[in-house]
Nucleic acid binder design. Sequence first.
DNA 1: ACTGGTCACTCTCCTTTGGTAAGTACGAAC
DNA 2: GTTCGTACTTACCAAAGGAGAGTGACCAGT
Lengths: 136, 136
Amino acid sequence: MRSVTTAQEVNDPTSSWDPYARGCPSRDLLDQIGSKWAVLVLGELGRHGVCRFTQLRQQLAGVSEKMLTQTLRTLERDGLLLRTVYPESPIRVEYELTPLGQTLRGPLKALTQWSVQHIEDVLDAREQYDERTGQR
Amino acid sequence: MRSVTTAQEVNDPTSSWDPYARGCPSRDLLDQIGSKWAVLVLGELGRHGVCRFTQLRQQLAGVSEKMLTQTLRTLERDGLLLRTVYPESPIRVEYELTPLGQTLRGPLKALTQWSVQHIEDVLDAREQYDERTGQR
DNA sequence: ACTGGTCACTCTCCTTTGGTAAGTACGAAC
DNA sequence: GTTCGTACTTACCAAAGGAGAGTGACCAGT
């Protein structure tokens, strides 16, 4: 068992993960999957199925190669995507979601859609806030 | 109209927000709402309805006062939560979700649940990855 | 043999963000 | 008048992120 064993969970090994607890792996994971580039990488792989490095770099306009590599490695390590190297010339590397990664599509799509659907409300709210606080 | 007007969207002013586009406000918003502390603050306010500063600081174990204040201000400005000051002594400040903030509960809850439900799979995947790459 | 091109990184430098801890403002209670 | 509680600010430093040049493997052309 890998569960972080503390006093209160000794008799309850299955339900001990709490993102609100400091240092809990589930908090770190939540942070990872909600991070800027991870959301977009997973979203893109969810829509296109299989992608190459350069393709992703173009779709996620503005990502640096360093961050793209870093994000892809982390997601691969977490078992969310599969990285396949074809030793052709020039080299070809393909990325695709694993079954585990697929299970994240729904939640992430919901979040992405929310940001598109409500961005105008948010921009309005910001304007009002700035007027309110700017006057004083 | 606040929409960022570029060539391809001149005849389509309503559906122009794209989180995959560099500098699009919806990308920034997605980044905000998916950020570490914002997720937890919104989650906590979703569960408890109304919270005070100190209460939030305790529930979100590990957050610094600086980051909590900063996160709360940003969320208030974005119209996701309401901040009410009661000029008693000692001062009392209450935070609660706005109707707009309520609409985020679903998506964020899904994400949080995912991280709890799949953290073990991810930890397994990491172990395997480290073995694979550590050997070479 | 040598130049140039492609792809997927990798490295370095510098800016921005985040964390730690101490300080501030206000009235109330002792 | 000193201490307490509450909700912040501020100063400082370490860690993460972004910009851009460099690397290595391979091959096509000259």
